[in-house]
């Protein structure tokens, strides 16, 4: 690990100012992702700017929906009554992730920015286009068992976001509030926050240099209230998803009025499937509909040797999640 300096910022302005002065610096909140990367030599920030004193806290009802401060921790949000009641899928996505210890440390903003678990990215001894652009991607013909099948490119097949929360956020139209060095705020939907790898897998999201995640706001909706997050992994706990599905349905008289679908573990980014939603909306809430939606969701899959199973697994996961919600 490199030597680094550490400072605590009292205000967002101070924090963004520090990064303006020293663009290689990094923000740190819970540190559950960043410290791992630093220990592995994959991040070498000369300065850590501690943002935990920033006022990005609180879980409150607003006219646009539930606003969650980016510095709230995963457990606090996952167990919050408003989240549990209005957004079961969001609550479950948080509480099925990591371990209680990590969830107590990790911030919502940090969770949204966690990096891939691709073994080739995590070990500097390997070539990796995401880490060293142009160096190559051994995962294409190597160990790609856990990697993505949707939104991938010939440069990178990593699930850039390996976690759970953003999958649920993407499903339910959550919007991120970002603040830049000038103190200016902007709103970015989670579905537009992440970037597909294309030929530039090193660029993973739309954050500008020094920009902070202030909050995430999830709109109130019937389909969010009737939602679930289903996570599949071979180990019962403390593992990333092989496939997951965040789904919400508004069913009236057996007909689906509105639907939300996002998949995790299979996409180069949290994978909102408007194709599946299209199939679901207006259709009867039956297994046939769910299966058709699952087929639509995986239409564009580009599987490789060891992750081809994810097509079927993701479809089955989605169908199961829809059944659970429809039956609820």
């Amino acid at each position: 690990m490199n030597d680094f300096s550490y400072t605590q910022a009292a205000t967002a302005k101070e924090a963004t100012g520090r990064l303006k002065d020293q663009p290689q610096a990094a923000y740190i909140a819970g540190g559950t992702t960043l410290l791992d990367l630093m220990k592995a030599g994959l991040a070498e920030p000369p300065l850590l700017v501690d943002i935990t004193r920033l006022p990005f806290k609180g879980i409150e009802q607003t006219k646009n929906g539930l606003r969650i401060g980016a510095l709230e921790n995963m457990n606090a949000v996952g167990e919050h009554p408003l989240v549990v009641q209005q957004y079961p899928a969001v609550s479950q996505s948080l509480l099925l992730a990591a371990s209680p210890q990590l969830r107590n440390m990790a911030s919502i903003g940090g969770n949204i920015l966690q990096r891939t678990r691709c073994g080739y990215f995590r070990d500097a001894a390997f070539p990796c286009n995401k880490r060293v652009p142009g160096s190559g991607c051994p995962a294409l013909t190597g160990d790609n068992h856990n990697l993505a099948i949707l939104g991938v490119s010939d440069a990178c097949i990593a699930n850039a976001y390996p976690g759970d929360l953003s999958v649920a956020l993407a499903a339910f139209d959550a919007v991120l509030t970002l603040e830049n060095a000038k103190g200016k705020e902007r709103q970015v939907p989670v579905t537009e926050f992440y970037l597909l790898p294309g030929t530039t897998p090193q660029k993973e999201n739309v954050l500008e240099a020094g920009e902070l995640i202030v909050a995430v706001t999830i709109p109130t909706a019937a389909h969010a209230q009737r939602s679930t997050y289903l996570k599949v992994r071979e180990r019962a706990s403390y593992a990333y998803a092989l496939a997951s599905a965040a789904v919400g349905l508004d069913v009236q008289g057996g007909t689906i009025r509105s639907a939300r679908v996002a998949l995790g573990g299979v996409g180069a980014q949290p994978w909102r499937s408007r194709e599946a939603e299209q199939v679901l909306t207006g259709a009867p809430a039956t297994e046939a509909t769910f299966k058709a939606a699952a087929t639509a969701a995986l239409q564009g899959a580009r599987p490789r040797e060891h992750n081809a199973y994810k097509v079927e697994l993701a479809q089955n996961t989605l169908v199961r999640a829809l059944q659970q919600v429809a039956g609820a």
């Binding site: 073994g119 070990d123 001894a125 390997f126 190597g142």
Partner: peptide, 9 residues
């Protein structure tokens, strides 16, 4: 890794 003989996990 089948080509590089290095552990990926």
């Amino acid at each position: 890794d089948p080509h590089l003989a290095r552990y990926t996990n």
